[in-house]
Design a binder for these strands. Sequence first.
DNA 1: GCCCTCTGGTTGATGTATCAACGGTTGATG
DNA 2: CATCAACCGTTGATACATCAACCAGAGGGC
Lengths: 147, 147
Amino acid sequence: MTADVSAAWQAYQRMRVQLNGRINRELTRSTGLSEADFDILFFLEQSGESSVTSLALRCGLEWEKSRLSHQLRRMEQRGLVVKEAPGAVIRLTDRGREQIAAARACHEAAVRRYFGDVLNAEQLAALTAISDQVVARLTEDRHATRR
Amino acid sequence: MTADVSAAWQAYQRMRVQLNGRINRELTRSTGLSEADFDILFFLEQSGESSVTSLALRCGLEWEKSRLSHQLRRMEQRGLVVKEAPGAVIRLTDRGREQIAAARACHEAAVRRYFGDVLNAEQLAALTAISDQVVARLTEDRHATRR
DNA sequence: GCCCTCTGGTTGATGTATCAACGGTTGATG
DNA sequence: CATCAACCGTTGATACATCAACCAGAGGGC
């Protein structure tokens, strides 16, 4: 592995671990929501009527089915969502709606602070391109490896 | 949050989840090691005599103490490392040395395939700079938030 | 000396991620 | 129609991450 690849990989790994660690910690501290909670609630809130099928959630978030099932069970126990008609539609509760509103503000502030404000327009564009290329490569290979 | 920040953030998140998911899955499939296992073994192997204090491990990897403790316990049960003199020195076993050798090859191949080969020199340099800047920002703020 | 605090490591509890296995429904093929 | 295959969602088992509580030893200040 050439030196520049190695350096980029190490730097990236460091950013990945620390940046997401920080943002999740701040989110959990100030709202009590985990990253998983946030992703689910965010997706539901974005989806018009705040209700959506399990399948749409799974595809939208690209989660494994068992992961989603476990997560929804825990969130239902905490009163953040309800499942209407077993295995069908997931709906935000009022409590869930409150929480995601607060969490969005907190999350956006953190992203701006540690990410958006640190990078200039060129860097943002470069990172977008880099990410898209890598994801495209992964998607290509998904077929090659039979899945 | 401006559109370019939002786009970059979303693209980055996608890459983060998918890229690390893929690499870890391949690593686990072909060697039976988790990312945590790999990080520990890699660090030990890099450290001259393949033995190092718990403290050096904690600082080098920037892990919480309880995380390291749990992880080392599990790895010792699997015969990958041994703890000599309680709480002091961690040492690679022969089995651990074998495993990390195989895992390194697998890991490097995956990093090259999905990351190094996909990006050109400019992009690698840009990503390194981006990562360093973000990490620097996080480090600044660590003091501000009293830790 | 005595206490106090800080730090290093451990442990238990909880939440999360992944895998394998299961039951149920649906759709195609014979 | 009967069967088979594919997919949905669920569940249990296991590994991992994090938090809080705990114990032990090392200094520092009195």
